[in-house]
Design a protein around this nucleic acid. Structure first.
Lengths: 311, 311
DNA sequence: AGATAATTATGAATAATTTTCATATATGCT
DNA sequence: AGCATATATGAAAATTATTCATAATTATCT
């Protein structure tokens, strides 16, 4: 009756404290999670969760099961890694093209983790900018592209990672700070500070400014911290992922505003050659990204798993 | 994809070394187990078992999963016991009536184990012989009957334990030893040594001798070892469960013969009052019996689980 | 060796379970 | 109070697991 599935759900529930967020984490609907918990409670004749308003709290019984999950799920993942090693799918290469500059932030620790588990896999970042990153896969120059590309292509598979909001970043006290939501025209008033990549690769420009026919001034720099420094010192405004600026917001180094009423969102995918899609270490890499990102990055949302995520 | 179900199956497969026996252990058909393993192999793209003729051997990958099962399944059981404690189903009484005398052999260690896990449950054996053991349940004198009773009765639930063969036990060199299979008439030749219970409670008499109209001489004694001693010293012959005499056979202290061409079989059930059937400690007791008996008793076969074994 | 029995594999059918969908209900916020 | 958000729930749909029937394979017994 109790299955690993339930433990994974409870784990997510414990971390998120919410049925619907937990559901997203395990790629199920809120309803499915609700049913799962109900089934567990009926099976054990015990309440697993306790509701104080909307917030979901685990009961002692629930905590005991989460504790079990903690002990067990790691063992399972570890065993599955060993199986990959046995099947000699433990060696290979994972050369990553990062289309999203800010993604360094979360990717770095994941890479460290990955190296520990897969010492035989050559892990690298492919540097430089590329107009068509996916073509690097075909040319065997890279093995993985992390970016926004998700159009179906022959021989390429896109795994959905997550959706995140891009926020306008302003110096505290900036005039635009008085608005709750910024519109395209607002960006004409100040210098736009971006990474040094082509205009069409900047979501704000491609999706907001260009369609609105607004002109802009641009200044570029390599590092996220540098962008934030420039913003804070009133040299301009920027547009960055919410999770990338969380700490700076908390310390009120900068402030953030939504772009457009419903916000400017960007979707991230991980693309690989079709023949690599079932490589065990690749799957493990994906799994780790999932775990780490959803646990640590604020405000991200899961994408539908329709992009081939079975097996 | 991998679920606890698979680990339980692999565990049984490891212990039995056979697909069909493993299937019986986990209360599935042979086909189901075969399909499970096939699914695992396809999922991991690895052979899990290796066949040398009919004998099934685990591959390294299979062994790794069994190792995982070993680590995990105990944790699960332990967590489930804790849940029972949380739900305050940890206290109660388990007064056992043992209809099958020889069953002391395997029950004793199980009781010891049980006491450790459920210190709050008063565990006892109800001594003496009873013409209708199940009525003791109704009278609240006992909580559990282990015996052959399986006729549906109002308010009583019978959990199937297992089926075992009753063998004729002879002194080495006994004349009847020359026959491969003993028939009813053969038992008229020698003294029958039994436990001191009514005739109708002795399977050999009720199912073989009486139907055949054969007469017999009987001598009784309390302990299994005493019976074996009398047999070995040529005071008579006995009929005992195969697993009960295994050690004595191995040391050639006595020899055993099948009774009738297809053997004399006995089914064992565990009966409880309906309202007790979902008690957590009772379920745990049942689970332990299952584990221990199938792991340690030779030649026993599972019974169909039709007697209400869900939840 | 040949026949028979026993064991496993497999495709199709069935059964059971899980998930989703469409809502209802409950809570929090302004 | 009213709207937005979160959870619960029954019924339908989808998926998955199991069984059934049978074929294929291996072992055993004259």
């Amino acid at each position: 009756m109790l299955e690993l599935r339930h433990l994974r759900t409870l784990n997510a529930l414990d971390e998120t404290g919410s049925i619907s967020l937990a559901a997203q984490r395990v790629h199920l609907t809120q309803s499915a999670v609700s049913h799962q918990i109900k089934a567990l409670q009926e099976h054990y004749q015990l309440p697993i969760i306790q509701r104080s308003g909307h917030a979901v709290q685990l009961t002692d019984a629930g905590k005991r099961l989460v504790q079990l999950a903690g002990k067990i799920l790691g063992e399972v993942q570890s065993a599955e890694r060993d199986l990959a090693k046995i099947s000699q799918q433990a060696a290979g290469s994972l050369r990553i093209v990062l289309e999203c500059h800010t993604c360094f932030d979360w990717l770095m620790p994941i890479m460290d983790d990955f190296r520990q588990h897969w010492p035989e896999v050559e892990l690298d970042l492919v540097s430089g900018f590329h107009s068509d990153p996916v073509s690097l896969l075909r040319q065997q120059v890279a093995d993985v592209v992390i970016g926004s590309e998700n159009k179906p292509q022959q021989g390429i598979i896109h795994f959905p990672l997550f959706r995140f909001e891009i926020l306008a970043v302003l110096a505290p006290g900036h005039v635009l700070g008085s608005k709750r939501v910024l519109e395209a025209a607002d960006f004409a008033q100040d210098v736009l500070i971006t990474y040094p990549v082509p205009e069409e690769r900047i979501d704000l420009i491609r999706q907001v400014l260009m369609p609105a026919g607004v002109s802009w001034q641009r200044r570029t720099t390599e590092l996220t911290v540098a962008i934030l420094q420039l913003v804070a010192s009133r040299r301009g405004i920027a547009a960055l992922p919410g999770w990338g600026i969380k700490n700076y917001l908390d310390y009120e180094y900068v402030i953030a505003r939504r772009i457009g009423t419903s916000g400017l969102w960007s979707d991230l995918y991980l693309s690989v050659r079709e023949q690599d899609a079932s490589l065990r270490y690749l799957r493990d890499f994906l799994e780790t990204i999932d775990q780490v990102c959803f646990a640590r990055l604020d405000g991200i949302k899961p994408l539908s798993k329709k992009g081939t995520r079975k097996n």
